[in-house]
Design a binder for these strands. Sequence first.
DNA 1: CCCAATAGTATGATTTTTCATACTTAATCT
DNA 2: AGATTAAGTATGAAAAATCATACTATTGGG
Lengths: 125, 125
Amino acid sequence: MANASKIEAKPTPAKPCSVETALDVIGGKWKGVILYHLIDGKKRFSEFRRLYPKLTQFMLTLQLRDLERDGLVHRQVYGEVPPRVEYSLTEYGRTLEPIILAMKAWGQTYQARQGMAAEADQECE
Amino acid sequence: MANASKIEAKPTPAKPCSVETALDVIGGKWKGVILYHLIDGKKRFSEFRRLYPKLTQFMLTLQLRDLERDGLVHRQVYGEVPPRVEYSLTEYGRTLEPIILAMKAWGQTYQARQGMAAEADQECE
DNA sequence: CCCAATAGTATGATTTTTCATACTTAATCT
DNA sequence: AGATTAAGTATGAAAAATCATACTATTGGG
């Protein structure tokens, strides 16, 4: 039927919901944990790889570049060989700290609720 | 998900990082906004459809079922015809309010920073 | 009888993500 | 000379997410 729906299509809002926006920026599969690990100091590329062996180089690069482009993470390249690159939170990135930490706390209650295995993994309890 | 074939060196930590867990639960493309809209009261299925015409029925159903399964959202079915179903936050779901609201506030600063179009859309400014 | 209304399901197709693997670069170590 | 190192790129394949469309049930109204 041609006229099946009376739901009006708004002309695709130029500005999406700000909750949506926030989740676009921090909500990927890995961005949250990357940001979390940056809260307590800068990290090298290889440190992230050690922290999360399941996170491939490709994905790590991708996510870090996104975070950098969005102004949350600073990428410091040292002109050495072998290369050294350090990632850290920008001042703006630090404004996310309360949210990341609140998510961590909430995630813990959720895990407890769902009876998830209780052994802490050492990197992010 | 079956890894019966081989014993892995790292046995795939039973409990992932809690930040990751939280983002699994609230971090989908639509879950954040669904939760946000539930903060100020229950909503019917069709209300969500009006609020977000780009969110298909299929996806809406899927996300709502996830949220229900995770204990965040209550689904109240009234035995009427045509059907009426109301979704609301559970008590546990309400524990997410501060996070959702913080994300909304942060998202606004981000949008301002990125010079996103400033006209508020009425449903989620 | 036929239609409209609501809250979905079912399906196959398409789009987007993610993965595994191999490759690069340039200085230092053996 | 050849191996090693860190921080990536590049590529094609595989997996997952999402979409568009059609379909269901029920019942009051015309």
